[in-house]
Design a protein around this nucleic acid. Structure first.
Lengths: 229, 229
DNA sequence: CGAAGTTCGTGATATTTTTCACTATCACCA
DNA sequence: TGGTGATAGTGAAAAATATCACGAACTTCG
């Protein structure tokens, strides 16, 4: 969760490189929503989509939409809007949905297997190449889901090896909280660069490893807080 | 207009009411993390915990911690820190972990059942009282998880009735995206006040209904974006 | 081709959130 | 009991983010 923004305020001279761009965090978090709306628009045959329309469908201010998209792609057409297909591709690029990233998942509990079976990951550019668990009873069991025929749960002590061997960059943690830090350590040691953590703990990792905590308690707390008012 | 804190102790009336406080959104989202650390501290027998220590464990600036906690509880003790047990209770109060909220869950897929089996909800003040699905093959099947003995999946056309009858306030949506809006409509019509949405769509609801979108694509996109840099 | 109507991109402004810096408060100890 | 050290609370400054507002670019149509 380190958002170090360089003070370098270089205006987009060459916008061709999708890599070097730095997006404000809130903008980055809105992009997936834009992506879905644009994808829907493309599907339903709309050639262009305007910021106001995008904003209306997502309840976001249209100026906000324009500013977000201008970070990503300064190619809207006045009078018409954004060319839907091109914008879609651009968003895929920025969000990394194009190049497939291999991932490992540790923790073959209900949540882990649910994620593992989720077909959507493919379209988001994630492929879970292996699932691990520490429980001997689970090891060797088949994985659920469409594309997982024949694949099985592996013992967690093979985790480090496999990560190293396949140069896996992304690890998904769905183990109970008291095991999470240990798994994270193994991952880090084996060279993983990003961790998607579903365990309700705050992991400690080196600063060059990105962690995204998917904390369900936050959602619950938010809602509960509103309800008790 | 400067040093007048002695006279103007509390910002408004006495702070006994946990209801009327309004927290900045980012603060509210950090509270669950504080809650966990404080809970751990209490468990391990620490009587007091300092903002610096909290911050260290969560990688949050200590001034930030103090400001957050001051919104919630202006009762830290200089020289010592916050009394762990009391702070814990205060956080439980604010986060609504004390009063149990009944909830319904719609969508008995893998994710829905995983949530349904998750024991942690109880301690967060949530109780899932019924699980619905539209799939006839699933209806009548048993629910997984410890406390769910004997309970079964109900047909979704009973959703409205049950919500109305039990005056349910919170709905959890774990259906495929194209069914989500319909479920949300039913919930809203039946009087639900908050929706926890796991479907990757932006729901349209009246302004008095709170929606929390738990969008996995955001997490993925964030990580992918960092990886492709 | 010109006028009317949209919509983008963005400087300027407002708002929100974080961080700094300092004082008052309290514990602890000799 | 007074001195020392640690820490909370909080104005004020800084940084980040969102919104406003307007000119310029483009389309459409007569």
């Amino acid at each position: 969760m380190s958002t170090r923004q360089a003070a370098d305020k270089s205006k987009s001279v060459e916008d061709a490189s999708p890599e070097s761009i730095t997006l404000p965090r809130p903008t980055l978090e809105r992009l997936p929503a834009y992506y879905r709306v644009v994808a829907a628009a493309v599907k339903s045959g709309e050639a262009y989509i305007a910021s106001s329309e995008l904003g209306r469908r997502l309840q976001i201010d249209d100026a906000q939409v324009r500013r977000d998209l201008s970070c990503v792609w300064g190619k809207g057409r006045p009078g018409l809007g954004y060319k839907a297909v091109d914008l879609l591709h651009r968003l895929e690029d920025v969000l990394g949905f194009n190049n497939v990233t291999d991932a490992v998942l540790v923790g073959a509990g209900r949540l882990g297997l649910a994620l593992c079976a989720y077909p959507g990951f493919r379209s988001y550019g994630i492929q879970i190449v292996a699932v691990f668990d520490a429980d001997k009873n689970k090891i060797g069991k088949k994985l659920p889901g469409e594309g997982n025929a024949g694949r099985v749960i592996l013992p967690v002590d093979k985790l480090g090896d496999l990560v190293r061997r396949l140069r896996i960059q992304l690890g998904i943690i769905t183990v109970p909280e008291h095991e999470a830090q240990g798994v994270a350590n193994t991952m880090v040691e084996a060279g993983i660069r990003a961790i998607w953590n579903f365990a309700p703990v705050s992991l400690t990792v080196p600063s060059d490893v990105v962690v995204r905590n998917e904390d369900l308690a936050i959602g619950l707390a938010t809602l509960q807080h509103y309800l008790t008012k």
